[in-house]
Nucleic acid binder design. Structure first.
Lengths: 154, 154
DNA sequence: ATAGAACTGTTCAAAAATGAACTATTAATG
DNA sequence: CATTAATAGTTCATTTTTGAACAGTTCTAT
């Protein structure tokens, strides 16, 4: 298609830069999750559910890419703590419908508004970005993620 | 500084976007690492070491933010497989000096040039970005990471 | 010098995350 | 229909990662 190595540093640069960012964000995620007695996957589930209403466990798996067993365990815990509601889907004795309980919504709000949460810190970190910059960042992330996810299938 | 919540969606957007990207990249990392009988931390160490020459284990810890025990185990394995050289630092019976062996350098090259490695895929994913876009992405990552890392100290 | 504090790296036990085998249900095929 | 294949979710064993206690070394302040 074209020369791959005309910018030989790019892949290493992006990987190192991403790795550092990942470490920084995940450190905060772990701390906040731990403060609320959540595992990291559980936190991830809450993030994902925060916009969705009712969603099937299968669909949640497609969204989050968590292994089935990880999901099952994490959901168990969330249900046990009353953050998530799990009901069999209507006319189907196999699939499970999931939705955030009132407590679940409240938990997310609490975390978001907590002054030392990832959310708050990220908001601050990103505060100096212009609307264009911010959107460009999100777009590039999505572009890369979509590309990599595609690659898995082929 | 100014109103934090004028863009209430930002933190959630960035977190979801980042989470998705993280999943996509880490899935590839795990696969490549596994193919070469490496753990994820070991892969991370190689990434970090690829630019450095001789570096102290303590310094490596500061760079990678891996827990001491994780580092110790991961390094053990790398030394055992001949990818890393570990020698006591001159005139200091406590600290350890680390450097990539010839085999270690070779391994990194192999991985980088493999057509299905994260490196290659990332390079492709990022190929449509202009120089400015790419640099902006890296800069924003660094900015966010630096901000979050600072927060830890305070 | 010397006692105590601080620091680097290892070890070992515990916690977190995952893969693989399994159960129960639904869909597909002859 | 009945039999086989495919699917959703759970369970259990294993792997991976991590925290905490530890051993040995260096630094600090008397």
């Amino acid at each position: 298609m074209y020369e791959c190595n005309n910018q030989p540093g790019r892949s290493m640069d992006i990987l190192q830069s991403f790795w550092r960012l990942k470490k920084a964000i995940m450190a905060q995620v772990k701390q906040i999750a731990h403060n609320h007695e959540l595992s990291v996957p559980q936190f991830g589930i809450l993030i994902t559910m925060s916009h969705k209403g009712k969603i099937t466990q299968k669909t949640l798996q497609e969204r989050t890419h968590f292994p089935k067993s990880t999901l099952s365990h994490a959901i168990d815990g969330l249900v046990l703590n009353g953050y998530l509601m799990r009901t069999p889907v209507e006319g189907n004795r196999r699939e499970m419908d999931l939705s955030l309980s009132e407590a679940g919504h409240q938990l997310i709000k609490d975390i978001q508004s907590q002054p030392d949460s990832v959310h708050t810190r990220l908001t601050h970190a990103v505060n100096s970005f212009s609307e264009e910059q911010f959107n460009a960042l999100i777009d590039m992330h999505q572009h890369i993620a979509a590309y990599l996810e595609d690659g898995d299938i082929q």
